[in-house]
Design a protein around this nucleic acid. Structure first.
Ligand code: MN
Ligand code: MN
Length: 557
DNA sequence: ACCCGACACTCACGC
DNA sequence: TCTCGCGTGG
DNA sequence: GCGTGAGTGTCGCCACGCGAG
């Protein structure tokens, strides 16, 4: 069982309150040690509120922003007037009446007509045309940098009431501790009730949770704040000093930090701050950061420096994407630093096919080629990664959803939390070995079919159910030899993140000969991506039939 | 499993 | 007047 | 013309109602 976390029925008009209280209760009981005394007592005070007040509070928490006009709150299910519930929330410090707000916040709350009316005096000074857009009005007003004012001071003759929600940081923190991320939210409960999502039931105990230390939660939130500022357009140089220092004791957070630095470097580079970009990228553990770092050095003409770093990077490439990138880079650099260019590993050339097709009105190139190649004897499917990933996800279901400590901690996982950790496979080695061993006999077919039946519809990071219909599954099991699947799955397991993409667009089955071939479609102006090349070359090396189909459009006359 | 990832499409460069 | 994008809610 | 490196856009429930333009 998943602890005692259940989703409230949507027949309950206050379903959202029930879900919210489920989360708060779970966090308060099992993560209490990660909360401060103040936070715990603040949460305790929820219980002294009336049900209507709690429900309204939850409504506000679920909505975006922290400022709300009473006229925009319409919740008949509360059973009492919203203003009454608001009074109660304000009395207990959950909200603040008639708060001070900056002019841009005011703009977000008022319609154009209201802005024109409320800000008539200010706008008159700006000399704006009567029909100026909201954006223009705001930029002009911002020039004047007016001090924040209370809502009723901005707009004295309003009939409305404005409230500010407090303690939003606490609610975000709770959501983060519960889900282990800020992407998921209260609405996940609803999506389950609606049947849009069905999650695998993995047993987990109350002690399995996303965070073990408050300090880690703080780091997460700190980095998230940096990310938000970056997205808000703040200069990266201003954000840089606020990024927490490297800490390899938590690989999960360190990889998040790496991604943040990657993005910060991108912004810095774009704005011409090369030194900052270099600093950010060299401190980032992101898979692509080192290459970006090297290419910037190259652009700056610091060839020798780049060459030396590239040499050492080559000894420990961060995945084969980087290895491929390093090879290209060093081929360019070699001339500049007067070194022998790296040996060009002899690559088998990838078989090509060229088609000239009438351009379909709406459908994509892939569909056009599919239609052209499809026949009774050779059914073609447009599957990209979904077929191989799906077969892998089905065969390895028990390993992927194994209840390892820390892998699952709430009922809404599409994959184990440590899927992209370095030691993901090794922690489950015996389980994966067992799954792959089933490929040594026909047993894998039964296992895959059984899982397909038992788990159908349950969300998994590897199984896209709509793409994996029974006929497609049967064709695949019939036409793809177990030996091929084993090779392919072994490659997947070598790097689950990098190798789960880049598979060719189409698969053509030849049921009579129990064989298949994979076809990557390229329309005019498209080209093979690196990871696509890597899959194609892997297949060639293992005698799996692949080709690239280049399409030209027929001249219309 | 983090405003992402996985595609194709687009523009821009240096040789 | 209609179209588009966004926030909301089940 | 090529090979290469970047950046952009789309989609991930779906129906609704509002506000901006
Ligand atoms: Mn494709
Ligand atoms: Mn393609």
């Amino acid at each position: 069982m998943n602890g005692r976390i259940t989703t409230a029925s949507l027949d309950d008009p206050l379903y959202y309150l029930a879900n919210f209280e489920t989360v708060v209760h779970w966090v308060a009981t099992h993560h209490g040690d990660l909360l401060t005394y103040d936070e715990r007592t603040r949460l305790d005070r929820l219980q002294s509120l009336s049900q209507a007040a709690r429900a309204l509070l939850v409504r506000l928490v679920m909505r975006s922003g922290e400022l709300f006009r009473l006229s925009k709150l319409n919740y008949p299910e509360l059973g009492v007037p919203e203003s009454e519930a608001l009074d109660e929330l304000a009395a207990d410090g959950w909200t603040e009446d008639d708060p001070e707000l900056a002019i841009d916040e005011l703009f977000r709350l008022l319609t154009v007509a209201e802005c024109r009316h409320a800000l008539a005096p200010i706008l008159a000074d700006c000399g704006l045309p009567r029909a100026a857009s909201k954006k223009a009005m705001l930029t002009d007003c911002l020039e004047l940098a007016p001090a924040p004012r209370r809502f009723t001071d901005w707009w004295p003759d309003t009939d409305d009431r404005l409230v500010a929600l407090h303690h939003m940081a606490l609610f975000d923190r709770i959501r983060l501790m519960f889900f282990g991320n800020l992407r998921q939210s209260w609405s996940d409960f609803v999506l389950v009730e609606l049947g849009h999502h069905q999650y695998e039931t993995v047993p987990f105990t109350p002690d399995s949770r996303a965070f073990q230390q408050r300090e880690a939660v703080d780091r997460y939130l700190l980095m998230q704040a940096c990310r938000d500022r970056l997205e808000g357009g703040e200069p990266p140089a201003d954000i840089w000093p606020d990024i927490p220092a490297r800490d390899d004791s938590n690989p999960w957070l360190e990889s998040r930090r790496g991604r943040l630095l990657m993005e910060l470097g991108r912004q810095a580079d774009r704005q011409g701050d090369a030194e900052l970009a270099l600093a950010a990228w060299s401190d980032s553990g992101h898979r692509e950061a080192r290459l970006r770092h090297l290419r910037l050095l190259e652009r700056q003409g610091r060839h020798q420096e780049a060459w030396d770093i590239a040499l050492s990077a080559q000894a420990e490439p961060r995945g084969d994407g980087e290895a491929q990138g390093l090879e290209r880079l060093m081929r360019r650099l070699a001339r500049k630093v007067d070194q022998a260019p790296p040996e060009r590993p002899k690559r088998p050339s990838i078989p090509e096919m060229h088609l000239t097709l009438p351009q379909p009105a709406a459908a994509s190139v892939e569909w056009a080629v599919l239609q052209d190649l499809d026949s009774e004897q050779t059914p073609v499917c447009y599957v990209e990664n979904t077929l191989i990933n799906g077969l892998f996800g089905l065969l390895c279901w028990p390993a992927l959803f194994a209840p390892l400590p820390g892998a699952f901690f709430h009922p809404f996982h599409i994959a184990p939390a440590d899927l992209h950790r370095e030691d993901f496979v090794s922690r489950r080695q015996a389980l994966f070995d067992d799954c792959l061993a089933a490929l040594d006999s026909d047993e894998y077919k039964d296992r895959i079919r059984r899982t397909w039946g038992e788990k159908h519809g349950i969300t998994s990071a590897f199984v896209a159910w709509p793409a994996l219909s029974e006929p497609v599954l049967e064709l695949a099991l019939h036409c793809i030899p177990a030996a091929d699947l084993k090779l392919i799955f072994q490659r997947l397991l070598r790097d689950l993140r990098d190798h789960r993409s880049g598979l060719p667009d189409l698969i053509r089955f030849h049921p009579e000969q129990a064989r298949y071939d994979l076809i990557e479609v390229k329309g005019p102006g498209d080209r093979l991506q690196d990871h696509q090349i890597r899959w194609l070359e892997f297949c060639l090396a293992h005698d799996i039939a692949v080709s690239v189909c280049y399409v030209r459009w027929q001249e219309a006359d």
